[in-house]
Nucleic acid binder design. Structure first.
Length: 888
RNA sequence: GGGCGGUUGGCUCAGCUGGCAGAGCGCUUCCUUGACAUGGAAGAGGUCAUAGGUUCAAGUCCUAUACCGCCCACCA
């Protein structure tokens, strides 16, 4: 049996955490214990970027998911937490491109095949970093099932999914106006564009009329796009321009003749009411161009420099071209004015370059047919989103009037290549196996589409591709659908919505029954964490090194309510570390007092005879805690659960029970000692179980030192709820606590030296006998002299020269003649009388109102009891006051 | 332009189905007592953003308003 002096005074997480994690993993505790008679609990990890580094987003999801997983595992359910990484198309390609650039090379020089080979090498070399870092957080994932979105099996799933959608007509290809990132030189989806309010300019440009009769002035924020203008549009109801409709204007600098057309969509009140139309470079104009059959003139290259359609401006960067155009227009007297103007500019989510709308041939997924059943799944409650308010956001995005087709093709090299082959006749062949002949004309002259798929396309299949889909594997049959999908609310659309759509489409089942969305980690000042705003606290590994993984996790749990952001706060992390240390020291105390022959913990101590009041009290509180934690966990209220157990262990177990137990342990009664030893260790054991999903390391380390059965706390049984609490024991011990607090308070108020043991006289009426059994506890906790502690039912006459205290309906006198200041004492009691009387009035008034009739009987009853006890309290205080006045 | 969230002690935040306002940190006073100074004891500190309403009863429900933050959106 370990002796307390074997445990260091302060807990050292650094040594413990690494050792325990390695041991758990080696023991195979992370893998599910498959039992087909039981319903499994399954969570798939939100796969981090394979070349990424740990950030607080990872710490957040590990904290919540590991809690869920460890809890369900302890409940005896077959439990799987499936890990893996994402190939992260653009992000990874950019990282590797930068690395290659350091050696003076570009990917174009290397060629596609060689470059992709280098990315794979990169992945092999650095792909383990993020998973190693996730281990540091204590994640109990089943590493034997680790997946990567570009594994052969998952790639097969991607291909199968694409082919099915293609054959169903839900995937199509065509030239459309898309968001184009000129730096990454690829199309991106609408979601990947981040809009930002920016201070820009509004340029008023005069377009001469062909007949020389004057000008029509248009307003634009992007003058360079005029190179692609194919019309000027006005509102048909605009009196100013009615006579110009149908006439022709001359595009300045290029001299192109363009028609003046009428369209309802033009707002008369904006700018001049006349708008230049650039169908190839603006979403509104694209619609306009389609309606009016205008020419689509693309004036930009893939890097957003002006192309050959731009005349003398060809070859210039878009912003250089803008400057030159503006100065040329000014020179030619065609620039009317420039106004300040705020506009919303789209930026690439990955590289933050300003996105350019341009026409390009891309692949799209039709969303509406997929969205409908996905909306229904949430509406019907088949999928539950926590917190519920995010339902609305989900519906809004998915709604038919709002959802837009998803551009899934990317002009990248790293990713799943689009499984479509073209022949020389322009036919497309799309199969799950590489075709050798064109499906339509039998041509053998085939070449594959150059594009790859959006990373999120493969992520959307993650809950089932990782379990073997499209094959009907054992895992897929048993473990799918998964249970809870846990992630940050920022990827509700990117990932969660798409998984729901794809899951229903391909497996016929929703991929999970609950979505739990946590908030985002922010800086201590509330600002957003990002690469350009990096601080020391940003790196979870630094935080772990200084405070421990347990502390970081517990901080995250206590600080975040569902769906709300959490600010980094190292003081709170430190507090969580202190909590771990507190438990550690409580355990040292328990171990030091175990005795030589600790009993098995399987004995239900609540049933034992001759338990002390404190024993019964803490056991009852423990039972209540189990019920509370179970309820809160089930409702995903982890922050409240964390606070409950923190409060129980620190305030109730350590500050009161351990202190009270010293009375018994230092006493002579061997049977009582055995009881208390048992309760001490059992309550600690149960609490460690409850706390383990939140702070896995320190709880396991302590548990290993306690007498225990089974190899590890992480596979120990979860505490059973539903035990009745002991109301009487709780009331009785709370009375003891109140008395102790009152005496301590008095001592403090009147500066009694802490070490001094003082006399006390208690008038306890019907509680006399019960308090009599607690005289040693009272004396110890309140530092009373046991020889001078009197407990009576009634006191006649009242002691003189004493501090008089009223607790509930009993009176306490501290006869400390020498230290009493009568006037001060009277003032104190008078103040208390006032307070109690005010309370009495409030209570009487309330019971006199409609409250008595309309409030629930239980609430009224409680109020009546309170009234009665307040009355008694007032009476006693008044008596004391009178006694003091008489003493004068 | 639509939608969502926030506004509670000096600071950071909890408060489930309405029933006398909570925590941690910070602050004040005291304590190196035998688990723990990463600690213990006692305390001070809030008209729950504002204005109405529903109710016996509102931090909690409803309606406006004001700030702060976020998401979505093709007005040049």
């Amino acid at each position: 049996m370990p002796k307390s002096n074997e445990l260091p005074k302060a807990y050292n997480p650094r040594e413990v955490e690494q050792r325990l994690y390695d041991w758990w993993e080696a023991q195979g505790f992370f893998a599910p214990q498959i039992d087909s008679s039981k319903k499994p609990f399954v969570v798939v990890i939100p796969p981090p970027n394979v070349t990424g580094e740990l950030h607080h987003g990872h710490a957040m999801f590990v904290t919540f998911e590991d809690l869920l997983i460890r809890w369900h595992r302890m409940k005896g359910e077959p439990t799987l937490w499936l890990p893996g990484t994402d190939h992260a198309g653009i992000a990874t390609q950019n990282v590797v491109e930068k690395a290659v650039a350091k050696q003076g090379k570009t990917r174009q020089q290397l060629g596609r095949e060689k470059f992709v080979e280098i990315v794979w090498e990169w992945k092999a070399e650095y792909g383990g970093i993020i998973t190693a870092q996730i281990r540091r957080l204590g994640a109990s994932v089943d590493w034997t099932r680790e997946r990567f979105t570009m594994d052969a099996q998952l790639s097969r799933a991607v291909r199968e999914a694409f082919v099915r959608l293609y054959k169903k007509g839900l995937i199509y290809r065509g030239p459309r106006l898309v968001n184009w990132c000129p730096r990454d030189e690829t199309a991106i989806s609408d979601l990947e564009v981040e809009h930002e309010e920016t201070q820009g300019k509004l340029y008023y440009v005069k377009y001469p009329l062909e007949d020389g009769s004057g000008f029509i002035t248009v307003a634009t924020t992007r003058p360079e796009t005029m190179l692609g203008d194919t019309a000027v549009a006005v509102n048909p109801n605009d009196a100013r321009y009615k006579n110009l409709i149908g006439r022709t204007a001359i595009l300045p600098e290029l001299g192109r003749k363009i028609p003046i057309i009428a369209d309802e969509s033009v707002a008369m009140e904006f700018g001049t009411g006349a708008v230049k139309v650039t169908p190839a470079h603006d979403p509104t104009d694209y619609e306009l161009g389609t309606r009016h059959n205008l020419a689509f003139i693309n004036v930009m290259n893939t890097d957003a420099s002006i192309n050959e359609n731009g005349g003398v401006y060809a070859g210039l960067d878009r912003f250089v071209a803008r400057e030159k155009l503006v100065s040329d227009l000014r020179r030619d007297g065609l620039l009317e004015k420039i106004e300040e103007h705020t506009l919303s500019l789209g930026h690439c989510q990955r590289c933050h370059a300003i996105v350019e709308p341009l026409i390009s041939t891309q692949w799209f997924v039709k969303m509406q047919p997929l969205a409908e059943p996905a909306i229904e799944a949430v509406r019907s409650g088949e999928i539950k989103i926590v917190p519920e308010r995010l339902n609305k956001i989900y519906f809004q995005w998915m709604d038919a009037s709002h959802i837009r087709d998803w551009c899934i093709s990317r002009q990248l090299w790293w990713g799943h290549r689009i499984p479509v082959w073209y022949c020389e006749n322009g036919h497309m062949t799309c199969e799950t196996t590489d075709p050798t002949r064109c499906a339509q004309c039998d041509s053998t002259n085939l070449h594959q589409d150059e594009d790859v798929l959006d990373t999120w396309f493969s992520s959307g299949l993650w809950p089932f591709s990782t379990l073997g889909w499209p094959d009907e594997t054992q895992d897929l049959k048993y473990l799918y659908p998964t249970s809870v999908l846990e992630t940050g609310y920022d990827i509700l659309f990117f990932w969660v919505a798409r998984m729901i759509m794809m899951g229903i489409e391909f497996t016929g089942k929703v991929p999970f029954d609950t979505v739990y969305l946590h908030g985002l980690m922010r800086h201590s000042d509330g600002s957003k964490m990002s690469k350009s705003n990096f601080r020391v606290g940003d790196n979870p590994l630094n935080v772990i090194a200084e405070y421990s993984s347990d502390a970081l996790r517990f901080f995250i749990l206590t600080s975040s309510s569902p769906g709300n952001d959490v600010r980094m706060n190292l003081d709170k992390v430190a507090d969580a570390r202190n909590f771990a240390n507190k438990i550690w020291n409580a355990a040292r105390f328990v171990l030091a007092n175990l005795g030589d022959t600790p009993e098995s913990l399987n004995h239900p101590f609540t049933q034992r005879p001759n338990l002390s009041l404190a024993d019964r009290w803490i056991l009852s509180r423990q039972g209540g805690l189990v019920n509370t934690i179970n309820r809160l966990f089930e409702e995903f209220r982890f922050n409240e659960a964390a606070q409950e157990i923190y409060h129980f262990l620190w305030d109730e177990y350590c500050d009161w029970y351990i202190e009270a137990s010293k009375v018994t342990l230092n006493g002579e009664d061997e049977a009582a000692k055995q009881n208390t030893r048992g309760v001490l260790v059992q309550v600690l054991d149960q609490s460690l179980r409850l706390l383990h999903p939140m702070m896995p390391f320190v709880t396991e380390e302590i548990w290993q030192h306690l007498p225990h059965e089974g190899p590890s706390l992480m596979v120990a049984e979860w505490p059973r709820g539903g035990q009745p609490t002991n109301e009487n024991a709780e009331k009785d011990f709370e009375r003891v606590m109140s008395i102790v607090r009152a005496i301590r308070n008095a001592r403090s108020e009147f500066n009694v030296e802490p070490a001094r043991r003082i006399p006390a006289i208690i008038a306890a009426s019907e509680h006399r006998d019960s308090l009599e059994t607690q005289r040693e506890v009272l004396a110890f906790l309140a530092r009373l002299n046991p020889e001078q502690l009197e407990i009576h039912a009634k006191l006649e006459p009242k002691p003189e020269q004493a501090y008089a205290l009223v607790v509930e309906d009993l009176e306490i006198y501290l006869p400390l003649a020498a230290m009493i200041d009568l006037e001060r004492e009277k003032a104190r009691i008078a103040k208390e009388v006032d307070k109690a009387r005010a309370e009495l009035v409030r209570s009487e008034k309330m019971l006199d109102s409609d409250f008595a009739q309309k409030a629930p009987a239980e609430v009224v009853q409680r109020e009546r009891e309170k009234l009665a006890s307040t009355r008694e309290r007032v009476a006693k205080l008044e008596e004391q006051l009178n006694a003091l006045n008489g003493a004068r």
